[in-house]
Design a binder for these strands. Structure first.
Length: 624
DNA sequence: GCCGTTTTCGGCCCGACTGTTTTCAGTCG
């Protein structure tokens, strides 16, 4: 685990205990906020901690938290956390993982009910004694029991690629409901986070009848397993996740997985708003929470108030403006709201409170006169799927792919690409049927021949060469020199020490034959952590040696991850976004790679897959 | 515990829903 994550976890833990102990809640909020900020930071906090002033420049980090950061980096501990933890049984803190059970309830269970862990809570429920506690009625206990069962089933966050089809299916259905003007998914899914904790759906309905119809359609959908809550404008359900995309194995593929009756589920929240509130509601529901809070504070400072119904003049009334018929300043589109707040439109992927507010202020000034109120993100300058013109990491039946060279080329051409690189596995990847030198040489010939025959697309001969544990590549240089594209990737020894991993990757980057560092950490989301190299050093080496760092677009990899992309982009590194194609549908994964690039603020010109053929081919040759 | 386009002190985003209460506390996002 990275230092950033470890520190964020500890600060969040401080916040949780403070809430449990009933301390000043704004203190807890400050610690929690700092935790989220540090988690999303693209620079290594340990490096930053050497300079206290630099720490204090980060939003939400003041003198007290800066000291805690420094203390943690230097000693590996935070004394304050140790003291706090000694005051609360660890099992009580764990109770907060139960959905719907917050700090106030946990404190009551502990102090008045004598509960010190989950087992104790269950005993209290069984005995019925729990009903004697304040605000604990039969219904509350019933909900609590369901929540405990859910927490015990170990519900982890769902991978982006599994959540997206669920959301798209629901949105399509809601769009067909009479009187529904717009429907979209929002939340962390729209922001393109690699995993999501729930799915948020927003609907704009013409009138109350349409709103009811949309809610009804949502509640009664076939995949709904449970209705959690259902009000006039807000409904939450738990739906089954189809595992039909879950057939990916580490290398190669298995047959379709059999759907399980009691398979994974995810919570889906629906919110219905009037059309004139669409933009404001979409912003509110897209988040991130920290981004929203910042915008609302900004609105207040401008004499305005922002909620999911719109941006209104702040007039000091107790009753919310939308209930008094106050005319909003903005709210129909997101761009309208951002502009009214003195900012350029901010793409969802950037809304993590990691400098995008200042960026949007600068952008608006640059793009005078004021941009149109459409929700186009042309001004943002981030990469889009339409910018991608080449696939540089693809496998054929020669190793572990399911397609021929010609089929690969046809797939790439159908997407409007000008180039595809055939990069089958190297000899050490025995499980993936890696190519011996003899087979590789023959394969190169086959690719060259296919390229001769191909029209409207260039087929390049390449290899996905294993980076061996000691940093050597799996083919000698005189073989690599024969290839148009060399993608060097780690596949084995993925749990080696960080120092060894750093040296290993830098060794590969330093080889003049290498063009692209493929899936640099080898992690699989929710399955294995992968390598934990010093990314700052890897990025610096890639920049020095003119090697592109790959964002592997498969939703289980997304490797580089978003924060590393941001650091690489800031360092001026080249980025490749590749689908690691093994089967025809893998080309579709490009959307996840591009989302991850956008989360790292990647402009198209810094991504080699967007370059025109001439420029790309020249760059590849320049390394020969 | 942080922070400043009325503030270096005194604020701190805003609304929906539920359950247990008789006007609201707790949780969530």
């Amino acid at each position: 685990m990275s230092t950033n994550q470890a520190l964020a976890d500890r600060l969040a833990q401080i916040a949780r205990i403070q809430e449990l102990l009933g301390a000043d809640r704004f203190r807890a909020i400050s610690n929690e906020r700092a935790a989220r900020t540090i988690e999303g930071l693209s620079v290594d906090i340990a490096t930053l901690a050497k300079d206290r002033k630099a720490l204090l420049e980060i939003d939400g980090i003041g003198p007290k938290i800066a000291d805690k950061v420094i203390e943690f980096v230097e000693t590996g501990r935070i004394a304050e956390l140790d003291e706090l933890a000694a005051q609360v049984p660890p099992g009580v803190i764990d109770l907060l993982n139960i959905p719907g059970l917050g700090p106030k309830t946990a404190a009551v269970l502990w102090k008045q009910g004598g509960v010190t862990d989950l087992a104790g809570l269950k005993r209290l429920i069984e005995s019925g004694e729990i009903l004697k506690l304040p605000r604990m009625g039969a219904k509350s206990v019933e909900r609590l029991k369901e929540s405990i069962a859910l927490a015990e089933s170990g519900s982890q966050r769902l991978a982006l690629g599994l959540a997206l089809p669920v959301a798209q299916r629901i949105v399509e259905r809601l769009r067909k409901v009479k009187g529904v003007q717009q429907a979209a998914y929002a939340g962390s899914l729209r922001r393109g986070k690699e995993t999501v904790g729930d799915i948020d759906i927003l609907v704009a309905a013409n009138d109350a009848d349409a709103a009811r119809a949309a809610s009804e359609a949502f509640r009664t959908a076939p995949e709904v397993r449970q209705v959690i809550l259902s009000g006039e404008t807000k409904t939450s359900v738990r739906v089954a996740v189809s595992p039909d995309l879950g057939r990916w194995t580490v290398e190669g593929r298995e047959g379709d997985a059999v759907p399980e009756e009691s398979g994974p589920t995810i919570q889906v929240d629906l919110r219905v708003v009037p059309p004139e509130s669409w933009g404001a509601a979409l912003m509110y529901f897209t988040g991130s929470k920290e981004h929203n809070i910042e915008l609302r504070e900004r609105a207040l400072a401008m004499g305005l108030t922002l909620n999911e119904y719109g941006l209104f003049p702040e007039d000091g009334h107790e009753e919310p403006p939308q209930k008094r018929g106050v005319k909003p300043v903005a709210g129909r589109t997101e761009a309208e709201v951002y502009h009214a707040l003195g900012m350029a439109y901010i793409p969802p992927e950037m809304r993590e409170l990691q400098g995008e507010i200042a960026w949007a202020e600068r952008s608006l000034k640059r793009s005078k006169p004021a941009p149109s109120d459409g929700d186009d993100d042309a001004t943002a300058g981030l990469i889009t799927v339409g910018d991608i013109k080449a696939e540089l990491h693809a496998h054929t039946t020669a190793s572990d792919g399911s397609m021929s060279i010609q089929q690969l080329a046809a797939g790439a051409k159908a997407r409007g690409y000008h180039t595809i690189a055939v990069t089958d596995h190297s000899r050490s990847s025995a499980i993936a049927n890696g190519l011996s030198i003899e087979r590789l040489l023959a394969h190169i010939e086959a690719v060259r021949e296919a390229n001769e025959q191909a029209e409207g697309i260039t087929i390049l001969a390449g290899s996905e060469v294993d980076i061996l544990a000691d940093g050597r590549l799996d083919y000698p240089d005189d073989i690599l020199e024969k290839l148009d594209v060399v993608v060097a990737s780690p596949h084995s020894s993925l749990s080696q020490a960080p120092e060894a991993a750093t040296a290993r990757l830098i060794s590969a980057i330093s080889n003049p034959c290498v063009h692209i560092l493929g899936h640099p950490t080898g992690r699989l989301i929710n399955r294995r952590a992968g390598l934990a190299p010093d990314m700052a050093k890897v990025i610096a080496a890639a920049k020095e040696h003119n090697v592109a760092l790959e964002i592997n677009a498969h939703w289980l990899r997304l490797d580089l991850r978003d924060t590393h992309v941001r650091a690489a982009v800031d360092a001026g590194c080249l980025i490749a976004i590749d689908c690691d194609v093994h089967a025809p549908e893998d080309f579709d994964n490009i959307v996840f790679g591009v989302l991850t690039g956008r989360r790292g603020w990647l402009p198209p010109e810094q991504c080699i897959n967007t370059w025109p053929a001439k420029k790309l081919h020249a760059w590849l040759k320049s390394k020969r």
